[in-house]
Every structure is written in structure tokens, then in C-alpha cells.
Amino acid sequence: MNINATLIGQSVAFFIFVLFCMKFVWPPVIAALREREKKIADGLDAANRAARDLEMAQEQATQKLSEAKGQAAEIIEQANKRATQIIEEAQAKARAEGERLKEQAQAEIEQEINSAREALRAQVGILAVAGAEKILATTIDPKAHAQLVDQLAAEI
């Protein structure tokens, strides 16, 4: 319980510890603390920003989606229209083609009839000449009577 030089020693030790603490302990730790505070604040800011961005993005996505849906509906409608149009066109074309074919067929038929008729005529001419030959039992010069025969044939 004596008061003695111990208190001087204690003071010296005290100042040394305080100075060491001030130079080598406090600044790095407090700097780390401040930096972390800043990091956390930045992180919170970023999180807020991200949340806002997300909301905006979601809004945009919804908008885009509805737009796309509208477009799709439009396209489908157009396609349907087009399909109907194509069908109609095809029907018209088919119909026209049918007509054409029918006409062509008819023309062919007529041609066939005509050629058959010609052939028939020729045959009839020959037959008539042959008949006449037989009837006349004479030799007739076909060339001399060709005109007559043709005339005959034309009358058939």
C-alpha cells in the first residue's frame, strides 16, 4: 500500500500502450470497419437497384408478351385469311382448268369426228368406186373419175 515509483512505471507503460494502440491497432481496424460499412451500404444500394431493375424488367416482359400475343393473333388471322384466299384461288383455278380441259376435250372430240368423217368419206368414195367397178364390171380409170367420186363423197 506504499505509494512509490511504481506509478511512474505504470504511467510509462500506459503511454507506450496508448501510443502503440494509436499507431498500429486502431487505424487498420477502424479502416476495415469503415470499409465494410461502405461495402454493406453499397451492397444494399445495389440490391435496391436490382430489385427496381427486376420490377422494370418484369413489366417490360409482360408488355412484350402481350405485344407478342397480339402479333401472333394478327398473324394467325392473316394466315387464315390467306388460306381462305388460297383455297378460293385454287378452286377458281381448278374450275377454270376444268372448263379448259372440257373445252379441249370437246374440240378433240369434234376433230376426231371430223377426221372420222373425212376417213369415212374417203372410204365411201373408194367403196363407191369399188362398187361401181363391180357393177360396171369394167375397168374404170380411177384418176378419170376421181372428180366424180370426190363430188359423191362430198355429198355424203
Binding site: N4, A5, T6, G9, Q10, F17, F24, V29
Partner: peptide
């Protein structure tokens, strides 16, 4: 003019423990 070696010794040792731990962290 006398020193309490136990007081000084323990306070310095404990101060060094404090400084040591905190410096290691710093």
C-alpha cells in the same frame, strides 16, 4: 524509490496480451 514488480509485471504482461491480440487482428 521502490517498484512493485508484481504490479508492473502483470500490467505489462496483460498490456502485451491486449496489444498482441489486437495487433494480430489489425
Amino acid at each position: 524509490w521502490a517498484f512493485h514488480l508484481d504490479t508492473l509485471g502483470w500490467s505489462v504482461v496483460l498490456g502485451l496480451i491486449f496489444i498482441g491480440i489486437f495487433r494480430a487482428v489489425a
